[in-house]
Write a protein that binds this DNA or RNA. Structure first.
Length: 412
DNA sequence: CGTCCACAGGAATGACGGGCGG
DNA sequence: CCGCCCGTCATTCCTGTGGACG
């Protein structure tokens, strides 16, 4: 009975409590607003670049640079959806296809995705990359359209798959007789050209657009604009607004981050039944976001990555070397009954944990005593215990770890 | 000033579970 | 059913290397 009345309270206060949000969706970062403050120049430039397609001419390829949360994706989608509407008005055959390369994952899937956007169905595996590309090309050429391809986060794909597929794409027009293709590449990494074949690079960046990070003032305007749509009037305090902008500005001017902070702060405040979103709510939101991120990351690790992380946990010292970790990992595998991986493999797993921010790995040389990586936990030990102990499979490893810790202490 | 440790991390290759077209 | 190809994970083999020690 206690439980259900508690739940009643939760539901009742949600329904009857103070309503802070008018429209939560507006704060999600995939939402494209009617107005993109401080990006008027970029909108105009990109608009001017793609405009020729309205007269059935191919437009220049464009390369867009800028860090995360600087509005690249929003501007591209904004301009292209308006272009599409205009094209309908003028009867121009324009179509665009937006692909996020990092999410899509491989060149195969990028081409598959492109094919689907021209109405072909492609199996998720089984064909050669070249075959998929050919199908896309002939599929596209069976129409007479001006096709604009947006490759978002293309740097991610180029870095681990190379730029061969980009080369193919940039040359596709030579083999098309009816349709035309233009490419808009979007990169988070400003040094992308270092990874690109000069021929690919020059043909891709017929036009270049750079998105500077927003400063705190600009972020503030963006948030203000959105908060009018997302919150009831007067529920957002000035100080909360300022602190959101300041925190996000400190993190390379990331508007996405600012919006997340604001949304979660609103949720925190709503849960507390507060009438006003305060600076304190934003601070809590900051912790909340980080906490969730880490828990999600921990849960989704593969078995061996978990064992590696547990080894670092178990070593329980300020910094451990690869070799030390491998020894402990070796024992844990035995205890757990899992086949063990090589040390070479372990090295890459550690690097993955590092890029997820779960550990910090740094190569150091100890001269006479070799060259290795120093690995340090980046997250709290209690969090690891919480997540792994709730998974029954691992509880035994914690008992074991307690025993081994005692052993370690005796030795030292 | 060379040596040599304890690895780093690239390249090539393989095993695996999937699915293709014929 | 076959032969082929996909992506993913992992192994094997390898060359490279910063700097304390002798």
């Amino acid at each position: 009975m206690g439980n259900s009345s508690v739940l009643d309270d939760v539901f009742d206060s949600f329904v009857n409590g103070v309503r802070l949000f008018k429209d939560r969706e507006v704060l999600r970062h995939d939402y494209i607003p009617e107005k993109l403050p401080h990006r008027e120049d970029q909108i105009r430039l990109l608009g001017a670049t793609v405009a020729p397609v309205l007269r059935d001419a191919r437009c220049s390829n464009v390369f867009i640079y800028g860090k995360t949360g600087t509005g690249k994706t929003a501007v591209a989608k904004f301009v292209l959806s308006h272009l599409e509407a205009k094209a309908k008005e003028y009867g121009a055959n324009v179509r665009f296809c937006y692909i996020n390369c990092r999410m899509t994952g491989s060149e195969y899937r990028v081409f598959a995705s492109l094919s689907q956007s021209v109405g072909l169905s492609i199996p998720f595996t089984g064909l050669s990359v070249g075959e998929v590309f050919d199908r896309f090309r002939s599929g596209l050429d069976s129409y007479r359209i001006n096709f604009i391809i947006v490759l978002d986060e293309v740097d991610a794909l180029i870095k681990d798959r190379g730029d061969a597929f980009m080369y193919e794409l940039t040359r596709i027009n030579e083999t098309l007789s009816k349709s035309k293709v233009s490419i808009i590449g979007i990169s988070n990494d400003l040094r992308l050209k270092e990874f690109l074949d000069p021929r690919v690079f020059s043909s891709l960046s017929e036009e270049e657009l750079v998105f500077r990070p927003y400063d705190a003032g600009e972020l503030r305007n963006i948030l203000l604009e959105r908060s009018k749509l997302s919150f009831q009037e007067g529920v957002l305090s000035e100080s909360a607004l300022s602190i959101c902008s300041a925190l996000a500005a400190a993190e390379h001017g990331d508007a996405r981050r600012a919006l997340d902070l604001l949304r979660v702060a609103g949720e925190v405040a709503e849960r507390e039944n507060a009438k006003l979103i305060t600076e304190e709510h934003v601070r809590q939101a900051e912790k909340h976001i980080e906490h969730n991120r880490v828990i999600e990351a921990l849960k989704n690790l593969t078995l061996h990555s978990k064992l590696v992380l547990l080894s670092v946990y178990h070593l329980n010292k300020p910094s451990a070397t690869t070799g030390e970790i491998y020894d402990v990992y070796n024992e844990l595998c035995g205890e757990f009954g899992a086949g063990l991986l090589t040390q070479r493999r372990l090295g890459t797993l550690i690097n993955e944990l590092d890029s997820m921010g779960l550990v910090n790995a740094k190569v150091v040389s100890m001269g006479r005593y070799g060259r290795t990586k120093k690995i340090r936990l980046e997250i709290s030990r209690s969090l690891i215990r919480d997540v792994f102990e709730s998974d029954g499979r691992f509880s035994r490893l914690f008992e074991y770890s307690a025993v081994a810790c005692r052993k370690d202490k005796k030795e030292t």
